[in-house]
Every structure is written in structure tokens, then in C-alpha cells.
Amino acid sequence: MALPLTPVSVTVDDGHLAQVETVAQALRDSGMEVERVLGSVGVITGRAPADARRSLLAVEGVTSVDGQLQVSLPPPDAPVQ
């Protein structure tokens, strides 16, 4: 049975900023469900199986693969936000 997908952010290195689409395609071929290709900042976000980190990191032009952080604000009536 396939592992569940978890949200990931893949950082593209400086040398491949002009080829983010090519990197994104290679990530898809390595099992990542690409949601957003962010050309200005050179980051590709999406979801991938938990055990795919190593294969994504091996994609040419990838400098970092990180699980996505979650951000949560306090409720609107909290005195400190």
C-alpha cells in the first residue's frame, strides 16, 4: 500500500532558477504531486510520500527538501496575537 502524501517545500538552487519548470517535471517523475511552481523565489511546493525525500533531493537543481511548517494564529478574541 502506498504511503500517505505529506506537504513538502522543495528549494531550487541558484543555478537552476531559470529552469524551475524542468526541475518541477523531474520532481513529478520522482513521485511528487506538484501544486505550485514559484519562479520568483525558486521554491516548488506540493505533496510527496514520506519516504520520497531522498529521491527528491537527488533531482538535479534541488538544494533542500523540507516538510511544510504549519502556522496558527490565536483566535480573534485573544489579547495577544
Binding site: 505550485r36 514559484l38 523565489v41 511546493t45 511548517l69 504549519q70 502556522v71 496558527s72 496575537q81
Partner: peptide
């Protein structure tokens, strides 16, 4: 409900940079 993740936040940064925003204010954190 006040929550978000990298995907949306990075997309927002990318959008702001692409639109030439000199300042990007982010009152959020983990």
C-alpha cells in the same frame, strides 16, 4: 480560522516579489 502552511505563504511571497512590492509584512510564524 487563522492557520496556513508553507505552500500558501511561499506563494504569497512569490506573488508579492513578482509584483514589485518593496516591503512584505508577515505577522506570522511557527
Amino acid at each position: 480560522e487563522g492557520s496556513g502552511d508553507d505552500g500558501g505563504i511561499l506563494a504569497g511571497i512569490d506573488w508579492a516579489v513578482a509584483n514589485g512590492c518593496a516591503v512584505i509584512s508577515m505577522s506570522l510564524g511557527a
